[in-house]
Amino acid sequence: MKNLITDVPGVLVGNADSAAHATGVTVVLFNTPAAASVSILGGGPGVRDTALLDPEMTVEAVDALVLSGGSAFGLDAAGGVQAVLVERGRGFRIRDLTVPIVPQAILFDLANGGDKHWGRKPPYFDLGMAAVEAAAPDFALGTAGAGFGATTATLKGGLGSASTVTPSGFTVGAVVAVNAVGSVTIGDGPQFWAAPYEQEGEYGGLGQPVRVPKEALRPRLKGGVGENTTIAVVACDAALTKAQCRRIANAAHDGLARSIRPSHTPLDGDLVFAAATGRRPLPEPVYALNEIAVAAADCLARAVARGVYEARALPFPGALPAWKDRFGRIMVTP
């Protein structure tokens, strides 16, 4: 286990980013088409081809899912992913034609200090191609991929991931680009809101404060309308329907609520894709699904904290500090 979403059999992840533009793309690639759905609870989402993920729609599976910076410009990334996948013969077959199914979500990172004056051709199509070509079991966290230019209210955001195995043996994982309107740490301290879910010191092992001061509960907000959005993919190796994936995506939003304060506001487009690779049948449809839903929410909370914990600050004037810049020398008290 690598503590990455790629611990789920049949899942690969690729990152591509541009330091000059301070943005990037992350692709979750499935070795074979996977059932998938999406749950959108933020007030300002930016998406591509998500309508087909509704359980009643015809297409049953996706080839890849894309997370990208760039706001609406970033929606070009899915086209780059499709260009590579069609060369590989991947996609929905219609007569002698192949159309790769690649839904996408974007976040806003246009005001982070990078050069966004890219003229008539934003970089996202090429970044999408590069990300899918880089898809592998190992991938970078923090300031990487779709999390390269991400920020939170108080610290540099980033790309995070985590995984677990449920008591019934299902592997569940999450990957998230943390670009939150709120904060992921408690007040002005180093501890994460997701501290109760941490495993093996994966984001510093500092635990929770003995008491959460009232001041820490005051919302810390970043930027204005549209300058936010945390986007995620949760995946498992169970054989699920699109409707069951929708239920997992709904439940996984609890992970955002546990790790970001506030989340799901009118100022962000928080959303979660859920996918199932179908490697393991459910022993029965209700309890096992509940077990996967709990694991997906916990993994997503951990992934959020890891994304911020692993991030590096951007090298631009006024850039937010990284967690390790502010708190990296703090040690756990025995």
Rank of each mutant, 00 (worst) to 15 (best):
T6D: 00
T6L: 00
G10L: 11
V13S: 08
A19R: 15
H21P: 00
A22Q: 15
V25Q: 07
T26G: 01
T26H: 06
T26R: 00
V28L: 09
L29G: 03
P33C: 05
V47L: 09
L52G: 02
D54A: 15
E56S: 13
M57K: 14
A61Q: 14
L67Q: 06
L67S: 10
G69D: 09
G70E: 03
F73N: 07
L75E: 04
V86Q: 13
F92Q: 11
R93Y: 00
T98L: 15
T98H: 05
I101Y: 09
I101Q: 10
Q104D: 12
A105H: 02
I106N: 12
G114Y: 07
K116Q: 12
K116T: 14
K116G: 04
W118C: 02
G119E: 08
Y124F: 15
Y124D: 11
D126E: 13
A131S: 03
E133K: 15
A135G: 00
A136S: 15
A136W: 03
P137F: 03
A144C: 01
A150R: 01
T152K: 05
T152H: 10
A153T: 13
G157I: 07
G160N: 02
S168G: 12
F170E: 08
V172R: 08
G173A: 03
V175T: 10
V176N: 02
V176I: 11
A180S: 14
S183I: 02
V184P: 04
D188T: 12
Q191H: 12
F192D: 04
F192T: 10
P196F: 04
E198T: 07
G201I: 08
G201K: 12
G201C: 05
Q208R: 15
P213I: 07
R218C: 00
L221K: 08
L221N: 05
K222S: 10
V225N: 13
V225M: 15
I231M: 04
I231R: 05
I231V: 14
A232P: 11
G255P: 02
L256V: 08
L256H: 13
P262T: 07
H264T: 09
L267Q: 12
D268P: 01
L271T: 02
L289Q: 07
A297V: 07
A305T: 02
R306H: 00
R306K: 15
E310N: 14
L314T: 07
F316N: 01
D325P: 03
R326C: 14
I330S: 00
I330Q: 12
M331D: 06
P334R: 14
